[in-house]
Simulated assay, not measured.
Amino acid sequence: MTDSSSARTPTATAAPGRDGATPAGSGGNPADERPYSPGLEGVVGAESAIGLVDGKNGRLLYRGYKIGELVERGTYAEVADLLWTGEWHPGAKLPPAPVPAPVLAALRELPRDAHPMDALRTAGSVWGATQRLAWPPTPEQARAMTAFAPSALAAFGRLRQGHEPVEPDTSLGIAAAFLQQLNGEPPDEAAARALDAYFIVGAEHGLNASTFTARVITSTRSDIASAVVGAIGALKGPLHGGAPAEVVNQLHEIGSPERAEQWVRETVARGERVMGFGHRVYRAYDPRAAALRTVAEQLGRNAEWLEMAVKVEDVVLRVLAELKPGRILKTNVEYYAAAVLQGVGLPPILYPSVFALARHAGWTAHAIEQVGAAKLIRPDMRYTGPA
């Protein structure tokens, strides 16, 4: 099928003639002088009241509230409600939801070695197909999807280990119930609070690739489940999903603070990345890293490992400043996310999908907000082929 009934069709014996005066091979539209920004870098693609990412000054605000204060004083349920409604409601609850039978059946059909991100994406898609979600997205729909997703991931986490899923304890919060369902026993209170804090830190972060995906899908008037499923697909990519697991592996490879300087110099000389340092946006210490460092210290787990991580961080920052004086490479959220996720006992294979659970609140909040824009997101494209 073609866009025009007058378009020519190539034959097996000869190529069709090209229309226009542009020589073959030069390509493009010389009359199009509009600026092009690869990756849309620097382009303002949306207006939002949900979150402020102030990279220059190392600030992250949710609806005007500082991330550090939200971690210290709030719960994920309260923060999610804030993102969805724009108002702070003390004591807001978000009880976990059970996994519907069609979703559980789909999860049972997946290979045990399927990536948990694939399982979470599949669960969201099947859930959406069972809900008959009406337009437009609403806070009630956002609550339902955010409450169900941790149960689905926990169910797959058990299935891949050869265990049967367990029902959520609805008296628990989302993070605590995730640990309860994953491990099949009541969660440790300190671990549950630490994971809840991680969920808060991961809930929202501006117009990143996955959030942009969710807003594009919503702008077509598709449903909230489609928006989240698309966002999960974007987050799965290694350029976006973060690397707490790689930070854990890196610290094990370094072994001790005394070896850190040599390791960093050798890694940089090979042209490889030092995971947990540097961010596309932040030009100061990532405020999420600062909040999670406090959480990790309060957790009291793996004290020797955390002490080593703190000492290694100091060495890495000093050496990177020496080797890359023209770049600002500060500690990012992945570094201390690794400490928290390891401290609560999660296997590294689950790290990206647990981050996706946290981001459900932000994705769905942006889907709700995008409705108000009432505009299909459709950037233009500059043609560079033969004219």
Rank of each mutant, 00 (worst) to 15 (best):
V264Q: 08
L357K: 06
L82G: 06
T75S: 14
Q141A: 15
V216F: 12
H163G: 11
A209T: 00
G39W: 06
N302G: 12
L40H: 04
P186T: 08
P137I: 09
E140R: 15
V53S: 10
M117L: 13
A24S: 14
D380L: 15
T85A: 05
D169V: 08
R158I: 01
A365S: 06
A361D: 03
S4P: 06
Q262L: 11
A291T: 07
G271F: 04
Y36N: 05
T364A: 14
A260G: 05
E246S: 11
A92R: 07
V312C: 02
V319F: 00
E261I: 05
D19M: 14
V333Y: 02
L61E: 07
R143V: 09
T146C: 10
F156P: 13
P137Y: 08
R378D: 01
A367M: 03
K66P: 13
I377Q: 10
V344K: 10
A337W: 00
F148Q: 15
E72W: 00
A373V: 12
S353F: 02
M1D: 02
T384E: 11
E185C: 12
G343P: 00
M308V: 01
H115V: 10
G242N: 08
N57P: 07
I50Y: 02
E109D: 13
P10E: 10
A269I: 03
V315D: 00
V247Y: 03
A101L: 09
Q180H: 15
E297C: 07
Q250P: 01
H115M: 09
G242H: 07
T85W: 12
V264A: 07
A97N: 13
G230E: 08
L172N: 09
M1N: 10
V295G: 11
D286N: 04
E307C: 08
